[in-house]
């Protein structure tokens, strides 16, 4: 492994830019991600920055059961994120559709149907600590040796 690759690994695991997209959740997961910003949890001390801009993100947090309006737009947002990238499903909705996954609803879960999901954080909604732990444990492994893996 080259020195450059080592440097990249180190930098990537310490600086993670996060973008979140709400594709039809009840807001519960939204505000739990927001609560991660609070000084109590202080997401930035781990080098995670919430930008909400897909063009500069590394990790996309997907919340919510996918509503018909989002089916094409979610893919568009995913394609805007530069490589290396990963998507995390936050909450039950993108995993299974939660309580909405019933006959007659308009939704189309799971989110893994539309974009590749790297990790799932179950819970309705998950605690901020669970979200933090998921991002922190996923980021170093998925971005490690990215250039070598690609080859």
């Amino acid at each position: 492994m080259s020195l450059l690759q080592k440097l990249k690994n180190r930098v990537r695991s310490k600086s993670i830019h996060v973008c979140f997209v709400d594709v039809g959740s009840c807001n519960g997961c939204d505000i739990e991600v927001l609560a991660c910003l609070a000084p109590r949890y202080d997401i930035e001390q781990y080098g995670i920055y919430v930008h909400n801009n897909p063009r500069e993100a590394d990790i996309l947090l997907v919340m919510g059961a996918v509503t018909p309006q989002w089916v094409d737009k979610l893919v568009a947002i995913w394609e805007k994120i530069p490589e290396p990238k990963a998507a995390i499903a936050i909450g039950n909705c993108p995993i299974s559709g939660c309580v909405y996954n019933r006959r007659d609803s308009y939704i189309d879960p799971p989110a893994a149907k539309h974009i590749p999901i790297a990790a799932q954080v179950p819970g309705c909604p998950p605690r901020p600590t669970e979200i933090l732990a998921a991002i922190l444990s996923l980021a170093p492994t998925i971005f490690e040796n990215y250039e070598e893996k690609k080859r």
């Binding site: 594709v23 039809g24 959740s25 509503t67 018909p68 309580v99 007659d104 609803s105 308009y106």
Partner: peptide, 22 residues
């Protein structure tokens, strides 16, 4: 329309212990 899940539609025909959560 980005969040339209049709909750009122799935509420129908269910008892309180399910509708409460919806």
């Amino acid at each position: 329309g980005y969040m339209k899940k049709g909750i009122e539609r799935i509420m129908r025909g269910r008892p309180w212990q399910e509708v409460m959560f919806l």
